[in-house]
Write a protein that binds this DNA or RNA. Sequence first.
DNA 1: AGGAGCATGTAAGCTGTTACATGATTTC
DNA 2: GAAATCATGTAACAGCTTACATGCTCCT
Lengths: 200, 200
Amino acid sequence: MNVRSICLAVLFCSDRTGYDIRKISTEGIFSFFIEASYGSIYPALNKLEEEGLVTCRHEALEGKPARKIYSITDDGRAAFASELFLPHRQDIFRSEFLLIAIFSRLVGPDVISSAIHRQIEFSKQELDQISSCGDSDEDTCDGEWSQEMTDLDRQAAQWAQNYGLYCVQASIDYLNEHGGDLIEIARKGHVGFNKSSELQ
Amino acid sequence: MNVRSICLAVLFCSDRTGYDIRKISTEGIFSFFIEASYGSIYPALNKLEEEGLVTCRHEALEGKPARKIYSITDDGRAAFASELFLPHRQDIFRSEFLLIAIFSRLVGPDVISSAIHRQIEFSKQELDQISSCGDSDEDTCDGEWSQEMTDLDRQAAQWAQNYGLYCVQASIDYLNEHGGDLIEIARKGHVGFNKSSELQ
DNA sequence: AGGAGCATGTAAGCTGTTACATGATTTC
DNA sequence: GAAATCATGTAACAGCTTACATGCTCCT
């Protein structure tokens, strides 16, 4: 998964500006694939245009800033599809929280406790984010995607959302049920390296 | 989380070679934080040595290849600890599988079906990997970590493992229970872009 | 004899981020 | 009038991967 693919994926669903793509890839369901910044999206779109996988039309509506709206071409669709047919790679999961958890004894019960709360907060935010993506037409694969099929596409997107929701909820459940145990471990073993003075 | 921190984290637990660190960060619990390759670990260790955060001793046992065993210094411990005290960042989750899921209609039921199986396979592998890390002394925070406390450290590591196990199991459950629905969506909506001929 | 695993390292290059630079419009 | 949001882009740099290069030991 790279910025290229995410651009094609978003454009597969409907025409977009670079700004849109960045927003969708950061806030929408597509944030499960990559989070791209402007610095990578704009150059990627230019390259994609050179290669004929997307086209671009300038739109200068009055009362709006000028924008460049990109559309995917047939070649682009084919290129994207052929990527999807390849066996997919394993999910990537990275957690700073778990690193702190492992070093519970070192950081002590207070730090662990606030880390757990922070982690639960993050998870709840994610829950909100996942449920809300798809609420507005802007965030989903609606738009120009062959009219009669949008309902099934929405169902697929919904399925993916539910998968995300289910996994995040599981993590919250574990944290709520067993967070206390970790704080207890930290309490029993805390032996110094007290950095409270350096906390800010 | 960068390679630097992961080196310090591993060395905090016990003395290691660059080779060890790479293995632990790829296969052990530490793979939840980053997966580093030799090309990043060796230069990182050199830099850390320059900065006095780790020291290195050469060991040339006969009947063994020469190895450079790194140890963390007090400065290194302090540097690592102060990182742990900082508010942690949100977990990162990236899934190619979910991208395919969203485009179910495009790839069709067969591809989705095998993607789901692949995903379940990956998750089971992860389950094995998580349960097995800590079996051998090599993979955990044992070693020189202040003897009388290793039990609590093990408990913290165990807690983190259980967290991982719980989340991965949730994902498998969802896949088993609802995978069929997605295949059904793909079946109903499949409309071409059939790349089976290109699948080889 | 060959393969797997142990062990270290470098160089080229890819990919992406951060920070900057700019400016219009909309909302409070 | 300030702040947020829309909108596009570049340049420097960070960070990591891949591929290469080397060589030893242990097991079968």
